[in-house]
Amino acid sequence: MSETTVRRAGNRVFIAAVVLACVWVLLPIYLLLINALSAPAEVTGFPKRFWPSFDLASIRFFLGFKGVTSALWNSVQVAVLTMVMAIGAGAPAGYALARFDFPGKQAFRFMVVMTRAFPLPLLALPLAVLFIRVGLDDTVIGLAFVHTTLALPFAVLITYSLFSGIPYELEEAALTLGCNRVQAFLKVVLPLAAPGIAASAVFAFVVSWNEVFASAVLTIEHRTLTAFLLQSLDVSPLPLKFAGGAALVLPALGFIFAVRKYLFAMWGIANR
């Protein structure tokens, strides 16, 4: 075999792998959309249409379903609280990691990642007991605390790489030009880091938005949308499942797509 044939064969394998990966990701989303945007009768019928009929009956049915709107509202509240708390605690930690050398820095970085090592089911029961004792069970803020724990490592890592990318010299220049440390941060670092911080906030939002296990265990009356759908999975009709699935997936996908550049930065792939 000549070199070109080998290379061509290699190319074909590569293209096939890319196509496979795309289908793997896109096909379920495609099916979800088709069914969410079709009339209930079409959802249960067969064969499927290639293009959705853009009949909003399924969506309307979903939104009108008892408990959906309040679950949706709970999801938004928990996600926003998670976002605020994860950035509020994570960004200062990321800044400290990026700017200062302190004893135990490596251990701290490791601990940040380690918080993700414990499976949530293991923690859920003790947490539920604890929450009941202190009265945080079945509350939006209580769930937001748990979600913050899940989102925090990412918030720390993303902002760490973000602040590391802003030369310290810029802050020092601001210090020599009349700023104190806080002013230097607000006037120089923050404007430069703002888009990345926003991205990290969006990511925290999505982590909370998608989380189902803790939500299902820790809430009863105040279910988030994920927990609500999980709970009613076996009793709800097919169109509701599809519409609910789409309502969950689309915002998350859209947000993640919008901030993808910064998420790559977390792993040092992108150079900014």
Binding site: P167, E169, E172, A174, L175, T176, C179, N180
Partner: peptide, 17 residues
């Protein structure tokens, strides 16, 4: 602190905001 010393500084990498 630097801002109370009556100095200004030019950095090696310019540090232009």
């Amino acid at each position: 602190p630097p801002r109370e010393r009556g100095i200004s500084m030019v950095f090696q990498n310019y540090a232009v905001f």
